[in-house]
């Protein structure tokens, strides 16, 4: 069960893209340690934009975000510290195609944390074991299936020993038969107490794993509820429309 210690605190976050588009219109969210929050919402509602502000892949203009007690500001040292503590898994995997699976995992710990390669590789092998693809360690990402690639991407984030994992539609680019293996890994992570913010439309996952489901629409959070209430008894008209569409 999540504790009450906040890992992510977002207050009144406003974001305009350089072309003037108002993508986030005052978003508040707090995520406790060990909590799994699923963000849903129609396409273009700002889900990706929002979770990408957590590790400063997107800037925001107003409001405040703090991650694990560190305030996101223009101070580059803060940003680097937060990125080391926050793993991110992308829809398109974004594995480094010129490195083997093992090198993908060990790059950041060796380069950023200056750890010994041999020690990191041992840890990386253990992680690959955990996501079930240890035997692919010496292959290149292009030689793996989509599901395997996404599991490597998860293991790559874990190799930095993050305290928070962010997922941006991790299964949307996968063939249906590979979705299960990735969700299984995410389920195990949640069970181990990892703090996770997951943008996904996987209802089953949200129902079983999420502690809280958040619905975004037009750059705002319109509903925030435990999955039981969210799926059976949504309070807002927007949520009902959205659920009607995806069910």
């Amino acid at each position: 069960m999540p504790s009450t210690q906040p890992m992510i605190e977002a207050r009144g976050v406003q974001k305009w893209y350089p072309n003037g588009f108002h993508a986030l219109r005052g978003v508040d969210l707090s995520v406790s340690k060990g909590e799994v929050v699923v963000i849903m919402g129609p396409s273009g509602s700002g889900k990706s934009t929002f979770i990408r502000t957590f590790n400063a892949l997107e800037e925001f203009q107003e409001g405040s975000i703090s991650v694990d007690g560190i305030a996101l500001s223009n101070d580059l040292r803060n940003i680097d510290a937060i990125r080391c503590d926050t793993g991110m898994v992308f829809q398109q995997f974004n594995l480094f195609p010129h490195l083997t699976v093992l090198e993908n995992l060990s790059l950041a710990p060796v380069v950023v944390r200056k750890r010994r390669r041999s020690e990191v590789e041992a840890q990386a092998m253990a992680l690959l074991e955990r996501v079930g693809i240890a035997e692919q360690a010496r292959k290149y990402p292009g030689q793996l299936s989509g599901g395997q690639q996404q599991r490597v991407a998860i293991a790559r984030s874990l190799c930095m020993e993050p305290r928070i994992l962010l997922f941006d539609e991790p299964t949307s680019a996968l063939d249906p038969e590979m979705v299960g293996e990735v969700l299984e890994v995410m389920r195990k992570l949640a069970a181990d107490g990892m703090t996770m913010v997951v943008v996904t439309h996987e209802m089953g996952f949200a129902r079983e794993v999420a502690h809280r489901v958040v619905l975004m629409s037009e750059g705002q959070i319109v509903e925030e509820a435990p999955p039981e209430t969210f799926f059976t008894n949504p309070q807002h008209e927007r949520s009902r429309q959205f659920l009607a569409q995806i069910l």
Binding site: C84, T86, G87, N94, L95, L107, V111
Partner: peptide, 24 residues
């Protein structure tokens, strides 16, 4: 996405360029 992935892992801009973007 390559640069984003590298940055999200904590690599600095020069590190990300040297290890991830430039080799490709």
């Amino acid at each position: 996405g390559q640069l984003e992935a590298a940055r999200s892992l904590g690599l600095s801009m020069p590190q990300a360029l040297q290890r991830v973007v430039l080799p490709q």
